[in-house]
Amino acid sequence: MSSALEQLAETGGGSVDDLIHRSQPEINRWIAQWEGIFPPGVLECRGIAEGLGWSWEKYATALCHHRLSGDLPQCTLVGRRDEGRPLFGKTDDIGLHQLGLNVMEISRPDVGHAHLHFHFGGTPWTVAGANAAGLMMGMTGIPGPMRDEDGLFSLMGLHTVLPACASVDEAISHLDPLPLNAYGFSLMLADRGGDFALVEKTGAGMTVIRADDKPLVHTNHILDDVFAAQNPQQSEPILSNGQRRYDTAKKRAADGVSVDSILADRSPQGAICQQGEAGLHTDFALLFDAVNDRLSLWAGYPGVVAPEIIDVGALLG
């Protein structure tokens, strides 16, 4: 998070202290808008700031660096049914200077489901995870409207899902009315009962895609044409990069290539495992098997590092 502040300050031509000072009015407004929807999330952020030994103003500025810079999450999702059970995979693609800064955290809230979740260190931004009730999820970023009203940044919205929801249907019902005021996400969901769905969600609304007889694939552009027209277009070079990844993943999945092999794909026309394309690098990848309560985690480039198998049921008790 310190490096994010330093980069933002350098871009603005001043010091970190200058950045913090000039950004406070809009950051205070954004935090108040989050707090209007999800007070526990802001309380958690204050606890993280205290644990880091940072002032609230410094932490809040770092927390909002995505919105200040436009540097937002770009990943690939691909899934299908294998002998009836849903299997899906996710890459998490970030900048070279950010590699190794994602963490897996286990949370056991006083109210809600115990869960493990993956997020950027020092933030509550949930990008993937699983809970003790058998729900698993993984996201990628899509463009959405920026609105000056009460609502959540997309990754804060995702932070609310795993404690609250036990199934795909519950997650869809939870997300539908949840107001977002910045950016958006596509979210692949599966549960222990074998349900499987893909959600596209922004401040403009939500779509749900179910395709039990064919693979589901998503990168960083909205698939539903009507919904896409209600949202901003993805920016370059992420738009072209994401379209190439989408084409690769869709073709490989249609050809019957396994999900884990797709995550490691290095096709020159659209590599799934990013190693510098459009400035992106795959920091980690996951294979989700909700029916069997199991995750496979590649803590680095899939296909280069060996996966670690996580028994979610045993870990969360």
Rank of each mutant, 00 (worst) to 15 (best):
A229H: 12
D191S: 06
G47W: 13
G203L: 05
D212V: 06
D247N: 12
G256L: 14
A128T: 08
L316C: 06
V304P: 03
H281E: 10
H65G: 13
V208E: 00
P40V: 04
Q233S: 15
F38P: 01
G157Y: 07
Y246M: 06
A49E: 10
E44G: 08
N102G: 11
H65D: 05
L158D: 04
A253V: 02
I222A: 02
D247G: 12
H281F: 03
L116T: 04
T282D: 11
D18H: 15
D148H: 13
L223G: 06
H221M: 09
R294P: 02
Y59E: 04
V257G: 12
V312N: 04
M139Q: 09
V217F: 07
A132S: 15
S267V: 02
D224C: 00
F185V: 10
A253M: 05
T140P: 07
H221K: 13
G256R: 06
G184Y: 00
S107F: 09
H221Q: 04
H159L: 15
V312R: 02
L87K: 13
D255H: 14
S258P: 01
K201L: 10
K250Q: 08
D283H: 09
F196W: 13
L187P: 06
R85K: 10
L77N: 10
L189F: 01
L5I: 07
E44P: 07
H159P: 05
P145T: 14
G95N: 08
G134M: 00
A60H: 06
R210D: 12
H159Q: 14
L316G: 01
L187C: 03
V312H: 09
I310L: 12
L116Y: 02
Y183L: 03
T248D: 02
L8R: 00
Y246N: 03
E44A: 13
A229E: 14
L280R: 00
A133T: 12
H281N: 06
V305M: 10
A264R: 00
A132D: 11
R67G: 10
Q269K: 14
G276T: 08
P145E: 07
P109C: 06
H66G: 15
A253I: 02
G144Y: 02
D289L: 08
A290G: 14
M137N: 08
